[in-house]
Amino acid sequence: MTDRITDTVIPDAWGTLRRFTQARIALGRAGSSLPTQPHLDFQFAHARARDAVHHTLAIEPLRAGLVERGLGVVTVHSAAADRPTYLKRPDLGRRLDAASRERLETYRAPGGKDFDVAFVIADGLSAFAIEQNALAFLDVMLPRVPAESWRIAPLVIAEQGRVAIGDEIAVALRARMVVVLVGERPGLSSPDSMGLYLTWQPAVGTTDARRNCISNVRREGMSFELAAHKLLYLMTEARGRHLSGVLLKDEVEAPPERLAAPGGNFLTEDT
């Protein structure tokens, strides 16, 4: 007669360290392998990130939400017809399809004047991030750019769009700078992270060195308030100094650490 099998997982003795990091430490082991529960937790996180990549942006609620706020909205599509094409051909995700380009030109400011800024909402690699964060962020941001000081172009929603699609949009609309709200590549623990990219006087072919980026904007990441504060600083500087990118440093105070990390390096601190 054999004994009943018990204790199939060997716990790790350093679970107390989990408070210092979001990393998947102290998972325990089955033999030396990953136990069932953390294994399936990981599979779920990956499935969620994959779903975020392939999730189609729900345009209508977004458009309705923007209209409700009294904003003009134009919907455009990149030259990447679908998600597989988007993933394989970044060049197509950076360009408008022909119909969108023509449509945008009808939204130019009257009297041949330029807009000061165009805001573009692009699904990027996580439409989920846009659905979670775009409207809520704009609610914080737009009151900081009142119409008397900023001529704002109609908001553009871009499907299958990468950051650089904002360049062609700004050219078509005649906007002096563009801010692209884009769904960032989903991480396992951050499937809903939104990025903000500012470019002064964009043109087709503008390189990333001429952009400023504010990353990880989401409820668990950088707050909408701080992101809006930084973005307004960059927009104001860009307009004043006629540049953006590496020459325009983000001199706003660093954000507080996302994770409280009490204690220094406990491995070498003697008590």
């Binding site: 790790d12 350093w14 360290l17 989990r18 210092f20 990091t21 990393a23 430490i25 102290a26 994770l259 990390a261 009490p262 204690g263 220094g264 390096n265 406990f266 491995l267």
Partner: peptide
């Protein structure tokens, strides 16, 4: 402390 935690792991 976060780096050290992963080093221990």
């Amino acid at each position: 402390s976060g780096v050290a935690a992963s080093i221990v792991d």
